[in-house]
């Protein structure tokens, strides 16, 4: 990592950490919480789909499972409303990962184009079950133990827990990228059969990566449920969630560390701001679609790669210019 990129990472982290201190308006801190939740999810999604090239469009299953773990456990265990409920966040992640194991075992038997479709199908199985089953509260949803924190700082603890999830997801992605496991996932992305013939246990690697990625997404779902206090099956199992985090990762730069974070930061804060200002979801759909199409047309590799290429090309050009100047100089001297 160069000095510049390290500085950008540190600055970004400091800015995120100071945000609720500087911007104290609860409405904006709430936007921050949602944005961070999406950043954690997009980063985690990228850790599997970006590295292996297996685009999963059923992440809402993990998000919903995490959310329902939080809701059902806190309700049925008669938990005292308050900070103790945060302990259920990792539990939500764990349950999501466990649920992902059989799903992955089925879905990962097929090749990548079919995988996309089968994850969508499995998503609908979960969504329909959640909407029709009794224990999810059906369409009227479930109400979690009411946390009676003061309205002016209610959002702040959630903000920092969400930031913790983002940091966790980012560090995990970075570690995975450096491990042999990460290298194997990248090899699978390029040529799965060849990787198999070089001793990579492709099935285990894919399944592990898939389940691991669901952990953070499940945690994010659990945090979301606790944050909003009431959940509905149709909102936690939302097809738009599936595609949103994929779009965020593509927008920022698939397979890169910073890309999904940046993509989520841009898209989610934009969406939240839009809903706050216009309360018109159709307009959001249009802008969201249009923005994504524009990005595809003008920077198909995503924002991060686009910028990185510009920077390296400029550096190369400057270097070439210096070299040229030196030769001219040398020539004139001779």
């Amino acid at each position: 990592m160069g000095h510049w990129s390290r500085a950008v990472w540190v600055l970004g982290l400091v800015a995120l950490a100071l945000f609720p201190v500087v911007v104290t308006s609860p409405a904006y801190v709430a936007i921050g919480v949602f944005t961070l939740i999406y950043m954690a999810c997009a980063s985690s999604w990228n850790m599997f789909s970006g590295y292996t090239g297996y685009i999963a469009l059923g992440s809402a299953v993990s998000y919903g499972v995490g959310a329902y773990t939080m809701a059902l456990v806190s309700i049925h265990a008669n938990m005292a409303p308050g900070a103790a409920m945060f302990w259920l966040v990792p539990l939500g992640g764990l349950v999501a990962s466990l649920v992902a194991l059989p799903i992955g075992a089925i879905a990962l038997r097929v090749r990548r184009h079919t995988f996309v479709v089968i994850t969508i199908a499995i998503f609908f199985v979960f969504q329909l079950t959640a909407i029709n089953a009794g224990f999810t509260g059906s369409t009227s949803g479930l109400i979690l133990p009411f946390i009676s924190w003061n309205e002016s700082y209610y959002n702040v603890p959630f903000y920092y827990v969400a930031l913790g999830l983002v940091i966790f997801a980012t560090i995990l992605s970075a570690l995975v990228r450096r491990s042999r496991f990460g290298l194997q996932m990248l090899a699978i992305r390029d040529d799965e059969d060849r990787a198999l013939g070089l001793g990579v246990r492709t099935t285990s690697v894919k399944l592990t990566g898939f389940a691991l990625a669901q952990f953070t997404i499940g945690m994010a779902g659990a945090l979301y449920a606790m944050f909003v206090g009431q959940i509905f099956p149709q909102f936690v199992f939302d097809p738009l969630f599936d595609v949103s985090i994929a779009l965020m990762a593509f927008l920022g730069g698939l397979g890169t560390l910073a890309g999904p974070l940046l993509g989520a930061l841009i898209l989610e804060s934009f969406q939240q701001w839009l809903t706050l200002t216009f309360s018109n979801s159709s307009l959001y759909l249009i802008l969201f679609g249009a923005l994504f199409l524009l990005v595809i047309l003008f920077m198909p590799q995503g924002i991060v790669v686009f910028i990185r290429d510009r920077v390296t090309r400029r550096a190369a050009r400057e270097k070439a210019a210096v070299a040229a100047a030196e030769t001219t100089l040398a020539g004139s001297r001779a």
Binding site: L247, I286, G289, L293
Partner: peptide, 25 residues
């Protein structure tokens, strides 16, 4: 490129959202 099919899913999804939003309006 190698991610053509994956990209196509997302691009057509974006097209779909664009049309969905317009039809809703």
């Amino acid at each position: 490129g190698p991610e053509k099919t994956a990209m196509s899913i997302l691009v057509t999804y974006a097209v779909s959202l664009l049309i969905e939003g317009s039809l809703n309006m």
